[in-house]
């Protein structure tokens, strides 16, 4: 039985200067740049067009910068462990390469765990907009940010708009200074006084809708990368035995994708959290 040989699977193509798989992944990454470019463009459009006061002056007013900084360090670390895996394969150290690959996988998992805590916090943190000012903690306020107590009635969403219906009342523990939770005394707010209520999910504002869309898509890319890395963690040995060079090339291609995911985060971090 004859076998079909894929041309330039291992050796560089004379025209592109690289093997075909690598060229393919670069073309894929170019399309990814356009995908994220469209989202960054949307961000610029929404931010520039936002009415005064509708966009936070600084992302840290809403988001957790220390956690995001930690995640940046984790993702950068995963990028270096990924390239170390490739370097180990180039030195014919398969065992060492698999260890670096496993560390990359764990870093990716750690990134998602931190993101889970960030997201969960946003979905359990609420803002209540009031029709008229009311006294809270010795100040007259028109909006209260905080966490709903267990006694507060469960909120329901409107089927038409997706927004929360105004409940009969809510009991909310206002944030302390600088957004810290649980510092204030719980306040009961009657439904007749509430103009709007929302958690800090995508429905809260264009800013958070943008935040969840961009970080959500980035998170999906992390998951995709983890699936590929896991595949090579499990079957890498068999491919390495058949063709060490082919396996090295595959890890290089996976690395290119992974570094791109890191690169996107490098721009997402300041744009969403620090500006």
């Amino acid at each position: 039985m004859s076998t079909t040989v894929i041309p330039h699977d291992l050796e560089p193509h004379p025209l592109t200067g690289m093997y075909n798989g690598k060229f393919g992944i670069w073309l894929f990454l170019a399309s990814e740049i356009m995908l994220f470019g469209a989202l960054f463009s949307t961000y610029v459009l929404l931010r520039v067009g936002a009415p005064p006061g509708q966009w936070p002056a600084h992302g840290s007013e809403i988001l957790n910068v220390p956690l995001a900084t930690l995640n940046t360090a984790v993702l950068i670390s995963s990028s270096v462990t990924m390239v170390m895996s490739w370097a180990a394969l180039k030195m014919k150290k398969f065992g060492s390469a698999q260890v670096w690959l496993t560390i990359t996988f764990l870093c990716a998992g750690a990134f998602l765990v931190v993101k889970y805590f960030e997201y969960t916090d946003k979905f359990h943190h609420y803002q209540v907009w009031l029709n008229d000012p009311m006294p809270v903690g010795g100040h007259e306020v028109t909006t209260i940010k905080g966490h709903l107590t267990a006694d507060s009635p469960k909120l329901e969403c409107s089927e038409k708009t997706g927004a929360f219906n105004i409940p009969e009342y809510v009991i909310i523990t206002p944030d302390g200074d600088h957004g810290s939770s649980g510092h204030g005394e719980a306040v009961r707010v009657e439904g007749s006084k509430i103009k709007r209520i929302s958690n800090f999910g995508p429905r809260h504002s264009p800013y958070l809708a943008t935040y969840f869309t961009m970080t959500g898509l980035h998170g999906l890319h992390i998951v995709g990368g983890m699936v590929v890395i896991l595949y090579f963690m499990l079957v890498g040995g068999a491919i390495w035995k058949r063709s060490p060079e082919k396996y090295t090339n595959r890890i290089e291609c996976t690395g290119l994708y992974w570094h791109f995911v890191d690169l996107v985060w490098i721009f997402l971090f300041p744009v969403l959290y620090l500006l």
């Binding site: 170019a30 356009m34 470019g37 960054f40 463009s41 610029v44 459009l45």
Partner: peptide, 12 residues
Amino acid sequence: CAFFFLVLLLIP
């Protein structure tokens, strides 16, 4: 790719 990325950013 960078050129079209800039075009995307300048659309607003």
